[in-house]
Design a protein around this nucleic acid. Sequence first.
DNA 1: TTGTAGGCGTTATCAG
DNA 2: CTGATAACGCCTACAA
Lengths: 340, 340
Amino acid sequence: MPPSAPPQIPTVQDVAIAAGVSTATVSRCLNEKQKVSLKTRERVMEAVERLGYTPNFNARAMAAKRSHTIGAIIPTMENAIFARGLQAFQETLHQLGYNLLVSSSAYQPKLEAEQIRELVARGAEGLLLIGYERDQAIYDYLDRRSIPTVLAWASSPDKAYPFVGFDNKAAMRGLADKVIEMGHRRIGVISGVIAGNDRAAGRLAGIKESWQSHGFDIENLAIIETPYDIEGGGKAFEKLMAADLKPTVIMCGNDVLATGAISKAREMGLGVPHDVSVTGFDDIELARCVWPPLTTVHVPHRQMGREAANALIDLIEKRSTNISRELDVSIVMRGSLVGL
Amino acid sequence: MPPSAPPQIPTVQDVAIAAGVSTATVSRCLNEKQKVSLKTRERVMEAVERLGYTPNFNARAMAAKRSHTIGAIIPTMENAIFARGLQAFQETLHQLGYNLLVSSSAYQPKLEAEQIRELVARGAEGLLLIGYERDQAIYDYLDRRSIPTVLAWASSPDKAYPFVGFDNKAAMRGLADKVIEMGHRRIGVISGVIAGNDRAAGRLAGIKESWQSHGFDIENLAIIETPYDIEGGGKAFEKLMAADLKPTVIMCGNDVLATGAISKAREMGLGVPHDVSVTGFDDIELARCVWPPLTTVHVPHRQMGREAANALIDLIEKRSTNISRELDVSIVMRGSLVGL
DNA sequence: TTGTAGGCGTTATCAG
DNA sequence: CTGATAACGCCTACAA
């Protein structure tokens, strides 16, 4: 006996033959049911079931010139910063009949560019990108192919490019204002890496603006840049607290850094907020479960994800074109920040 | 003037014409460079650059019957449980020349089944799935199409299916043994939802086994099932601590639940570990930054991701077939657990 | 309502 | 080393 034939994956052809109809009819059964009589439809579907047929996505996309696929590129999946927003984004997309392809760029612009091409090559009909700061060549590429794209987690500077996000600078400035009004005069800042990250840059700029507008000298702001992770937050905290004039408050670029700072404070025997206050940004779940709970800037991640999805699909289906949306953020006062 | 022509995306054809060669030659330039003379190659590549050509993935996959794509379906992206492992998985894949497509099933078996079909339809040449508990029909489907698949985060019960993971039951049993040896006799358990989740089930079973093997009655184990999130951990903790005979230790199905428990303890004015000990599972970054730091089971996530990738590619490229690997876990003693 | 046939963008086979 | 040409699996006018 010869070795069993390689398990063929069934095609429309196979189904068509099995059901005694043409491939066109099978295709119709799967796509526009109403256009085929109940009787044949049943026969076809029976064959589909029996053979375990699943249409080949690549072939379908090519023939129909339609993939119903959206691509999203986020800077990292290692922490929860983008998780909630992306989840909402994908749920909404699903309701609208689209699938989501995600990839992560590890905060590397080069990788992001590659992945954009990859997603487009895979037939993505629209893209979600985080922030606006990227090589002009990328925008040119997107424009040339007219790939609908919306930016999230930030508002594009001149509001020209479609976005669904919020003003990082203004938000952080609001928090800094509050911190200063509460009497703090020695602020340490733990910022995310600025290069290629407009959100981090905006947040830092917000602190600087507030500081200067209160008449203080920018030189007196102690700033450390570090990757967005708990360990980075801890190390930066340690350095900042080693100064002669210790900061009375550490403002962090996000909740992950702030968590690292708080954790390190405890390790160093420093009480938060008694010895030093700490603030975060994002209001992810983590912010409420560290001790003391974090004073932070609340970002409506789910709403952002939902609205970004709707905006993008509107763009694709050409329902509207002026879809940008700036969302409101709010300051959440919790135990990690006290006045002097 | 007519409206500007719709921005055509260039195809091999366009490149071929622009370079004055055939499409075959263009294709060769992109895939098997060595087979084309330097001179023409340069001309072709110039055209590629100038037109901004990117090969269409779908067409390529169809013609070559090769996608170099691996699919992974994880239960959730909302917390970091799978993040590190997946990151390593994808990095290794990338080194091996493969791309990764991820989707999340939200812990819903039905969604997982859908997504498996979706990924296969997209031409995934191999699959990474979490755990082993799923409908036999899915395994049949995978077998029929002979889609190489490896299971991770668990070891398949009869070791028959390829896996790269660890023994959840034994691991948790080891921790429970330690807890009991330290004198605890009233254990509260916060378990993940068991239905459809063999990892959660295994961990719970490990505690039960340990408990019984020490001669205690299973009835005296207080158990609550809850979704894997911080809030769920908090609520469950509250319930468990409302008992007449309060537990002296709360063993949690993972670090996220444990974090919720610790957080709630503080809220209730209970000291950890003084009033009640808490344990976790996974040893994600979080475990070291809550206070007190979590006693937990360390899972070598990165290693698991790497080895799973290697195993899967070995399977696909038929280098070997007996690729299963059971990884060692270890217990990490930290401040959240003390003896009585 | 159903079938026929052409084409989607690439790669691979086979000549030249 | 290069060029035709036939697939790949499906959709969609167009025809019947």
